[in-house]
């Protein structure tokens, strides 16, 4: 008679059962995390495995481990942000690192210091990792070229937001397990969205099918050719939201970036709402287990209706929590790489 209270966790492989070879940390090659285009699927799996351990730390009463004690992480934001910044800062602090936070308005940037000089100053201050957000696409690449310090891209212009791409995929993975044949619909301003771009790279070779749904003006010119050229054949483009949502497993409306709408990409916000808002009525066309995600911040009543944002299928808050775990995993991994 076996009545032992024992861990029934899935991880511990038992004899006789088939188990995948254990992931080795030796897989990890990235000193910098700039985009997901150079991530192998094993590397993504490694990030997720470590994030699982971090989720457990986040569920504790005392959410602090001493792993990165004595290391310093600089967080440089040249653009406003709430969740990404708070998320990175908490991730660093939960791992025991010290953080220094700089934002452009309050630092020497306001006095005209160049990006590279600011970065070199941080490096001279013996910072171990620099997390950077910048309005110009490619800025973190320039940073990485000029520094021996690890650089993590927290969003650069319209180009990439790798930690967001990873946390989105992680959220989908935790919900569905097997991703094969699942349909992800990303709706809205693809043109200006670094989240969409990183999600396209991140979902490559996962078995997910990604549908980009937007008015023609929001799809960059030459996008179909680019997708083909890069071998991203899991992505397709659809202009009609009702068609796109049919059987969808993940629905991800993007923020309508009002600050970029002066130049006539859409005729009016009201028309955009009518054609592209994800609302309760439209969501009925999606699959039975559909989840709603949003990279935030939301314009409630524009790209997403209030009822959908807070419905039971919405994992928007879960994304934020997972984001901390993913960023802890990334900070842990880059800390172990030889400079």
């Amino acid at each position: 008679m076996e009545r032992i209270v024992s861990p029934n966790e899935p991880k511990l492989s038992t004899a006789g059962q088939e188990s995948l070879p254990p992931l080795s940390i030796g897989l990890w090659r990235h000193r910098n995390v700039l985009d997901l285009d150079d991530f192998l699927s094993d590397e993504i799996a490694l990030v997720f495995e470590i994030a699982d351990g971090m989720v457990e730390v986040l569920a504790r009463d005392v959410k602090k481990v001493p792993t990165l004690r004595g290391r310093t992480i600089a967080i440089m934001f040249y653009e406003p942000s709430t969740r990404t910044r708070a998320s990175f800062e908490l991730a660093a602090k939960y791992l025991g690192a010290d953080t220094v936070s700089l934002d452009s308005a309050k630092s020497s940037v306001a006095k005209g210091e160049s990006l590279i000089d600011s970065l070199r100053t941080l490096q001279a201050l013996e910072v171990n990792t620099i997390i950077i957000r910048h309005p110009c696409s490619g800025a973190p690449y320039i940073a990485a070229q000029h520094l021996q310090t690890s650089v993590i891209n927290a969003g650069d212009g319209c180009h990439a937001h790798p930690s967001q791409g990873l946390l989105d995929l992680y959220t989908i993975k935790r919900k569905f397990g097997d991703l094969k044949g699942r349909k992800v619909v990303i709706i809205g301003d693809i043109m200006h969205s670094r989240v969409a771009r990183s999600n396209i790279w991140g979902t490559r070779s996962t078995g997910l099918h990604v549908v980009l749904c937007a008015p023609k003006t929001f799809i960059p010119q030459g996008m179909p050719e680019m997708l083909e050229k890069c071998g991203l054949d899991h992505v397709s483009i659809e202009h009609n939201l009702d068609h796109a949502l049919e059987g969808a497993d993940v629905v991800m409306p993007l923020r309508l970036q009002k600050e970029r709408q002066q130049s006539g990409f859409i005729s009016s916000i009201r028309e955009y709402v009518r054609l592209y808002q994800v609302n309760g009525e439209r969501l009925k066309k999606a699959g039975p287990d559909v989840i709603v995600m949003h990279p935030g911040p939301m314009n409630e009543g524009v790209e997403i209706s209030h009822d959908v944002a807070y419905c039971n299928s919405s994992l928007i808050e879960q994304q934020v929590t997972n984001g901390v775990a993913i960023r802890m995993a990334l900070l842990y991994l880059v800390s172990g790489v030889r400079n």
Binding site: E9, K11, P22, L23, S24, I25, G26, L46, E49, I50, D52, G53, M54, V55, E56, V57, V65, P66, T67, L68, R69, G70, R71, L95, A329, Y332, S335, G336, R338
Partner: peptide, 18 residues
């Protein structure tokens, strides 16, 4: 997460769940 060799160069441990 509690090891004393994590921040030394070239550590090689995958974090697992407690």
């Amino acid at each position: 997460l509690y090891r004393d060799d994590v921040t030394s160069l070239g550590f090689k441990h995958v974090v697992q769940q407690t």
